[in-house]
């Protein structure tokens, strides 16, 4: 979804079908689709192999079907993180002072799409696979931090939304003048706060290892996740920053039919 600031060479190309401010819409929708396929596949994989190979971490089948998936996830996460963040940084706009209002508006739309992709990943991590963890704890006896659901939830879903949140942050920082001039507090809160959820995994596993054996979901050892997710409310501030800037920018462009 990232493009640099050349005054919209692609606009006229796509312009026949899509208005200039929605230039990145197809990529946005494709990313939505790809993420849906990805998460659904992971859930289907759980359906296929969790009971048959994921009930005991000391079994060879667990190593084959689950730990191997874990290692693949780590590799994918490392590649995606490096690739996306490096791309966004190295293709940054070095001439932000020459940005036209229209292009800046278009980039606000693209930033909104990035954040939307981020919140879509937050959905899978914070809603579906998170509560599914409780369901899995009613089936498996927890004997490892790497359960068949944790391997997907903690070590893939969490890092992935952190990466996508980081992408939104980097996109804004490298392509939008106001975000480049100052560091947006709400955007930083909305990205770094939920990042702390990933860190809370350590607290959670420590708690379950040493002093909390029960699968009580509303237990205090889970509240680190809760506090982390409150920071998602920073999106309200991002919205306000976007709205005020867009109003200014709209005043700078001509009306068109």
């Amino acid at each position: 979804m990232a493009t640099t600031s050349e005054p919209m060479p692609a606009v006229t190309h796509i312009g026949k079908r899509l208005p200039w401010y929605l230039q990145d819409l197809p990529r946005y929708l494709k990313t939505f689709g790809a993420l849906t396929v990805l998460y659904t596949s992971l859930r289907l994989y759980q359906g296929a192999f969790a009971v048959s190979a994921g009930l005991d971490s000391t079994e060879p089948a667990f190593e084959q079907y689950w730990m191997r998936l874990f290692y693949i996830e780590l590799a994918v996460i490392a590649v995606v993180m490096t690739g996306l963040w490096a791309y966004l940084w190295f293709t940054r706009d070095r001439q932000l002072d020459k940005l036209s209002p229209k292009e800046e508006i278009r980039r606000y739309f693209t930033l909104t799409m990035w954040i939307s992709i981020y919140t879509f990943a937050v959905y899978w991590a914070g809603s579906y696979f998170a509560e599914q963890d409780n369901s899995w704890h009613q089936v498996a006896i927890r004997d490892t931090p790497f359960t068949a659901n944790h391997i997907i939830e903690f070590y893939f879903n969490f890092p992935l939304y952190v990466i996508l949140g980081g992408c939104a942050w980097l996109y804004a920082r490298t392509r939008l003048p106001l975000y480049a001039k100052g560091i947006s507090l709400p955007l930083t809160l909305a990205v770094f706060g939920p990042f702390m959820i990933l860190v809370s995994v350590g607290f959670n596993e420590w708690g379950h290892t040493f002093w909390f054996r029960e699968e009580f979901f509303a237990a205090p050892i889970h509240w680190g996740f809760v506090i982390g997710v409150w920071f998602a409310l920073g999106v309200g501030g991002i919205l306000l920053q976007g709205v005020t800037r867009l109003i200014d920018l709209l005043d700078q462009i001509e009306d068109a039919d």
């Binding site: 959905y123 979901f217 509240w223 809760v226 409150w230 999106v235």
Partner: peptide, 27 residues
Amino acid sequence: LILVLALFLFIGSFHLHFALTVGDWDF
């Protein structure tokens, strides 16, 4: 765009908050 963003944001964040504070009573 904002509505789609907000829908998934609140499903994801409010649900996580709710599941880990009310959780078992609702499950």
